[in-house]
Design a protein around this nucleic acid. Sequence first.
DNA 1: ACCTGAACACCGTTCAAGT
DNA 2: ACCTGAACACCGTTCAAGT
Lengths: 223, 223
Amino acid sequence: MVKNTRRTQRGEASLSRERIVEAAIALLDEHGESGLTFRALSEELATGAGAIYWHVANKGELLSAACDAMVARAMDAAVTAAPPRETVRILGLGLFDAIDAHPWVGAELARSPMKMPMVRILEAIGRQMRTFGVAEQELWLAASSLLNFILGVAGQNAANSEYARAQGLVRASFFDAVSSAWSALDEDAFPFVRSMIVPMREHDDRADFLAGIDLILDGIAAR
Amino acid sequence: MVKNTRRTQRGEASLSRERIVEAAIALLDEHGESGLTFRALSEELATGAGAIYWHVANKGELLSAACDAMVARAMDAAVTAAPPRETVRILGLGLFDAIDAHPWVGAELARSPMKMPMVRILEAIGRQMRTFGVAEQELWLAASSLLNFILGVAGQNAANSEYARAQGLVRASFFDAVSSAWSALDEDAFPFVRSMIVPMREHDDRADFLAGIDLILDGIAAR
DNA sequence: ACCTGAACACCGTTCAAGT
DNA sequence: ACCTGAACACCGTTCAAGT
């Protein structure tokens, strides 16, 4: 490991997959999804684009790795000895908060096929379903339903945040904008949505997310 | 309406938002999300990029309009006089099949904030929840939970299809690939996921989707 | 009012060349 | 083995100019 002694001594770690992913996370957090470009990354890391490609296959892999790092962190933080129902809530909330703080994680999760970041979530949820007492032949359904719900919420939250960012709005005024859009809908064509304007405005994403998980757990328990 | 008589007589309708959206849908269906570019669209429509921009604000609006057209079609096709539980299943399946046939719809849906395509789905589901007998103060939760689950499934299905397309795989061999990836996971770190290899391979997306909806409806009914 | 198409300011990715 | 940075082949979007 003599190769980069000089750089290390100067306080600049040599280029590595880890450092690249770290820098990518910083860019994504600061400027949103559109903030991650190989040019910005090169500048941040003081190298050329080609150097990054030596450590990472392409942008997709980079995004996926960044997402995975965040999800792994959230899953690890949610390790408890609580009963399964409570643990699933903690897991879910951990993910919810991570996505709330880093919307791009939700967007990437909603895109990623059955690869690593999702496998982690499936593992964490599935274990709880098993201790929850779900029958063996229903485990896949229980775990994947919960997962799909969580991914749906994740995607929506991320979309809302990105949209709000693009419009330069804060969270509260985003829902103001939605509510005025819904007010303009035709009463005959959209009676239900119009009747939801007030509930939508008063709703609490976090609380609804938890309640949704409970709904599904109730449905599972009812079998 | 004299302006484009000549063009119309020649059998080429003049440029319009509708024709543009139509062409966009054709490109998306044929070549996936990456197939929709303003250049390809210009060629297809035999015009310049600027002409398209006169009718459509930007690419996002175009994608959203294309998605909305597909969702509207699916929702209209699912109008029945069946009891609410059955109707929700029909609505869901209609959407599921539309996304299965046009994966880009699922991807766009997972991205779109609380705008038009989603408002349609919310309206259709919400009406059924009301006739289902859900209490007024629980309507938002019931409808939005169902919606989030559906969007989650939509996003995953779309991601799987896009991934399979990119790899040049058919559906069956996609799950083969996932199962061999899962087989390579560490047994100690991922016992649950490894135990799901067989169930995952044998599962039926459509059936699981329906079962998931039932799970949530059961949870709602249990209140 | 509607369309043309060249031009602009970006992208991700590659690759010969260096150390 | 690792890095440089110019070059390539694309993008979405704009805009002066046409009809």
